[in-house]
Design a binder for these strands. Structure first.
Length: 603
DNA sequence: GCCGTTTTCGGCCCGACTGTTTTCAGTCG
């Protein structure tokens, strides 16, 4: 890896995280103090989850604000960003053959085994080390090594082959896809009479934007039979199986971990298996100060040499025993929720039923737009909104393309569109006798120069605007920040900043922006930030939602629907909002119509 | 190497599973 990825001053967070993991691996091989190893692993986790580049922290002189980065690592990073070199990192990595690093990506191979394999079998070519190891294993050279045997050899062959098929763990899926898989599994498991209850836990229960593995816990009358039933679900292979659970690999590359627990201890299991890892570590560390040790079986109290274990049927009781309020799964990321739970300051999170409308819907009305049209008519959208018990919807088509129209034509098109929507809305309303309201809005492109894609006069024909970036994603952080800032102050009818980071999960990273600057301006201008609920966007990301809230910004949860079915994605946006600690009062589309109209249009 | 709702020193989450071993090391979540 270090043949292609050199240590340098341009490293992004993912590369830095990888670097720290590799350093930790070297320390592990060298038998370093295990807490130093853990420190590097935690630094890696921390950097990976940052919402801004570590380099930007450094630029702002805030490198020591990154959790898990103390004086030592900070000084190495300082050297790295300043000079492009970090002698300590380079020296550490050079202590082992670089060919061990690719091997760490193969499941079941950790630092120690990678090191033995590489040195004992002289596998020194970094580029081909995985293929070379496979060859040696096939020739039964691995089983001869000390600490390895025939079974490990077979396991290595199997794991390399699975890995080469398409790095399983690298690809995460969207929440929507994971929901579908999990629901199918749940239905299957409940078909077995011995299975009494199934819960989807892990990142899926926490409603994380993308999902790696799927975690399930069950209550069953006959544990063995239940595990058996689970292992018969259509799978590629059974990864492991024990008396308390099993893991399988699905044919679509997803790993599913299932655990069985008694009713009496089920609360502890729900807590343990929901995670996150960082939440659990923080919770257990805190518990230790109270002489309590937490596990999936319950809470052990240590008094001298005497240990007693207390079981918990519900998660609420588990948290209460630790002297804190129950914590909603969406908050369990070690972002301050434990402290809040101890002082009874867990916010009353927004719920799907609080949502009274959706501002970002595209219809099939053809205004010769800059981007794609919707597929449904205004009437079909209204029918759907009505069925969802909304009070109002905002129709936000893309602006007419600037390349094909003069300013005059754009004004004409929008004028025509306004009267079209008004007429159609009133006849729909008359026919259906429903008390729903519409806002005739527009999603306007923020051009690369920070101007908007419609002339000022055209604003006369819309009630309010969403503005979004749809081009030139590669601008520098400074340029992008200025671009958005100047667009935000173009016109008083600008009320929402659409899909703010532009990310497409699994396809495109969001662009770099100085978020505090944007948030401050939005708060000042009373512009809401969109939480785009489309499962491929979930943009603004939850961690930034939490930051923005601290900057006193308001939010709009929108589906960006291009068809009526997508309007149901609203719940995914609510998931993001909850993960960002939002209450009903932080979100404009929880307001009732009159109040909302006042906010949106000032009348 | 990090960090503080008992600590600026002395701690650092907890357990399952597998394989190669006869009591444990490595890996994983």
């Amino acid at each position: 890896m270090y043949a292609t990825m050199k240590v340098n001053s341009m490293m992004n967070n993912l590369q830095l995280a990888q670097l720290f993991r590799d350093i930790a691996a070297v320390y592990e091989i060298k038998g370093e103090n295990r807490f130093r190893i853990i420190a590097y692993q935690r630094a890696a986790d921390s950097i990976e989850h940052l919402t801004s580049e570590a380099k930007d922290y450094w630029d702002d002189g805030k490198i020591n604000e990154i959790p898990g980065i103390g004086p030592t690592i900070a000084s190495h990073l300082d050297e790295l960003f300043r000079t492009g070199h970090a002698k300590h990192f380079e020296k550490t990595l050079a202590q082992v053959p670089s060919s061990i690093f690719p091997l760490l990506l193969v499941p079941g191979i950790g630092p120690k085994r990678a090191y033995s394999l590489v040195t004992e079998l002289s596998l020194l070519k970094e580029k081909s080390v995985i293929d070379d190891l496979l060859q040696k294993a096939v020739l039964h050279k691995v089983a001869e090594l000390p600490g390895f045997g025939e079974k490990s050899e077979e396991e290595i062959i199997k794991n390399i082959k699975t890995y080469q098929k398409g790095s399983i763990k690298e690809v995460r899926i969207t929440l929507a896809e994971a929901d579908e898989i999990a629901n199918h599994l749940k239905e299957y498991l409940l078909k077995n009479k011995t299975v009494k209850r199934v819960d989807v836990l892990g990142s899926l229960r926490r409603r994380v934007a993308t999902i790696g593995d799927i975690d399930l816990a069950i209550i069953a009358d006959d544990t063995n039979q239940a595990i058996d039933h689970f292992c018969h679900y259509r799978n590629e292979k059974i990864i492991e199986r024990g008396p308390t659970g099993a893991s399988i690999l699905l044919t679509n590359g997803r790993q599913v971990d299932m655990r069985v627990q008694d009713r009496a201890s089920y609360g502890a299991m729900l807590q343990y298996f929901t995670g996150s890892k960082n939440h659990n570590i923080r919770l257990r560390t805190y518990a230790l100060t109270k002489h309590k040790s937490l596990s999936e079986y319950g809470i052990k109290t240590i008094k001298g040499t005497k240990e007693t274990i207390k079981k918990f049927a519900t998660e609420e009781d588990f948290y209460h025993d630790l002297g804190m309020d129950w914590i909603p799964p969406e908050l369990r990321e070690d972002r301050g929720e434990i402290e809040a739970a101890m002082t009874h300051q867990i916010p009353n999170l927004v719920q799907k039923t609080n949502i009274l409308g959706d501002f970002h819907i595209h219809t099939n009305y053809n205004l010769e737009p800059s981007h794609d049209l919707g597929t449904n008519s205004l009437e079909e959208i209204l029918d759907t909104a009505e069925a969802m018990e909304y009070e109002y919807v905002g129709i936000s088509d893309h602006n007419p393309s600037t390349g094909n129209h003069t300013e005059k034509q754009i004004i004409e098109i929008l004028k025509k569109r306004k009267s079209y929507y008004e007429q159609h809305f009133y006849s729909w309303k008359k026919k259906n006798k429903k008390n729903i309201h519409i806002f005739i809005m527009l999603e306007i492109d923020i051009l690369p120069n920070g101007k908007l894609a419609i002339p000022t006069k055209a604003f006369e024909y819309i009630d309010a605007a969403i503005i979004s970036v749809h081009s030139s994603f590669q601008q520098t952080r400074g340029d992008m920040t200025n671009r958005i800032k100047s667009a935000l102050i173009c016109h008083p009818k600008i009320k929402i900043l659409g899909h703010p980071t532009g990310r497409l999960l699994g396809k495109r990273e969001g662009y770099e922006v100085d978020w505090p600057e944007i948030f401050d301006l939005c708060a000042k201008q009373n512009i809401a930030i969109e939480i785009n609920a489309h499962p491929y966007r979930l943009d603004l990301p939850d961690a930034l939602v939490q930051t923005a809230k601290k900057n006193k910004v308001l939010f709009a949860i929108n589906t960006d629907s291009h068809d009526k079915e997508s309007m149901n994605f609203m719940s995914y946006g609510v998931d993001v909002a909850r993960r960002g600690w939002l209450t009903k009062d932080d979100i404009i589309n929880t307001m009732q119509y009159n109040k909302l109209r006042e906010w949106l249009m000032g009348k």
